[in-house]
Computed example of a mutant assay.
Amino acid sequence: MVERTRLDLGYEFRDPSLLQRALTHASYVNESSEPLQSNEVLEYLGDAVLDMLVAEALVACMAEAGEGTLTRLRAMLVAEAGLAQVAQEIGLGEHLRLGRGEEAQGGRERPGLLADALEAVIGAAYTDGGLEAARTVVNRLFGPRLAQAAATAGIDPKSRLQAVVQAHRHLTPSYRLRRAWGPDHDRQFEVECLVGDDVVGTGRGRSKKEATMAAAAAALEKAAPPLDAEPPPRRKEPAGGGKP
């Protein structure tokens, strides 16, 4: 019988054995008398899926950033150190199945092993439920980091705001022209920024684009409650699906 594994992934596996396989290190397989599979193939798959989904998310929330910036941010987000930190935050190490030797050498806290296991979990989600399942897991685990990356990478206020709002509220900010005035040679515009139905910032400028950027900057600085406030904690469900 497959044991239920509690991980806060935001996704419930239809086939819990895939998640268990994602948490099974080769050292455990080598020491087991059972015909088991390690997580190496799922890790390979998850590595490719993660790269694609992080790239997709970056383009969605930072469409105006250049290719060089997007490439640099993606590399930072999927680097071993970052993946290991995400794995530690969700307590992935305590669920790993390790051989006695790997366990004795501190494998549950080894960054490379944790990063590989996290990629395997993403690969397992993809195998279990397709791209949408993997996207759900990646958004759950990496959403706040995408927002932080935008804020620290010199991205314009509109793109930064979109990253923050999508990560924490799962919405996309919208903008509307409130008013325009002045002669053609000195036209002024006022734009409102909305999240859902709420006006969260207002900006003025000599063009609609300039006013939009000002509205986004105002939203980042003055919104109350903060747009990047952590959402209420969600009750953890068994990632393996069903009830224990």
Rank of each mutant, 00 (worst) to 15 (best):
V2P: 15
T5I: 15
R6G: 04
D8Y: 07
E12R: 15
E12F: 01
S17R: 15
L18N: 09
Q20P: 02
A22E: 09
H25Y: 05
N30Q: 12
N30K: 15
P35K: 07
P35V: 06
L36S: 05
Q37M: 12
L42P: 10
E43Y: 03
G46Q: 02
L50R: 08
D51M: 06
E56R: 15
E56L: 06
L58Y: 01
G68W: 11
T69V: 15
T69D: 09
R72W: 01
R72L: 10
L73K: 04
R74G: 11
M76D: 14
L77K: 04
V78G: 03
A79N: 13
A81E: 15
Q88W: 00
Q88M: 07
E89L: 00
G93Q: 04
H95W: 02
L98S: 02
G101D: 10
G107V: 09
R108W: 02
R108M: 00
E109F: 08
L114H: 13
L114P: 05
L118H: 02
E119Y: 08
V121H: 09
I122Q: 04
Y126S: 02
L131T: 11
L131S: 11
V138G: 14
F142D: 05
G143I: 06
P144E: 08
P144C: 09
R145I: 04
Q148C: 00
A151D: 05
T152N: 01
I155L: 00
P157C: 03
R160N: 03
R160Y: 00
Q166P: 00
A167N: 03
A167I: 00
H170C: 07
L177D: 02
L177M: 14
R178P: 08
A180K: 15
A180I: 02
E192M: 09
C193A: 14
L194R: 10
V195I: 12
A214V: 13
E221Y: 04
K222S: 13
P226G: 05
A229L: 12
E230D: 14
E230I: 01
P232D: 08
P232R: 10
R234S: 11
R234G: 15
E237A: 11
K243P: 04
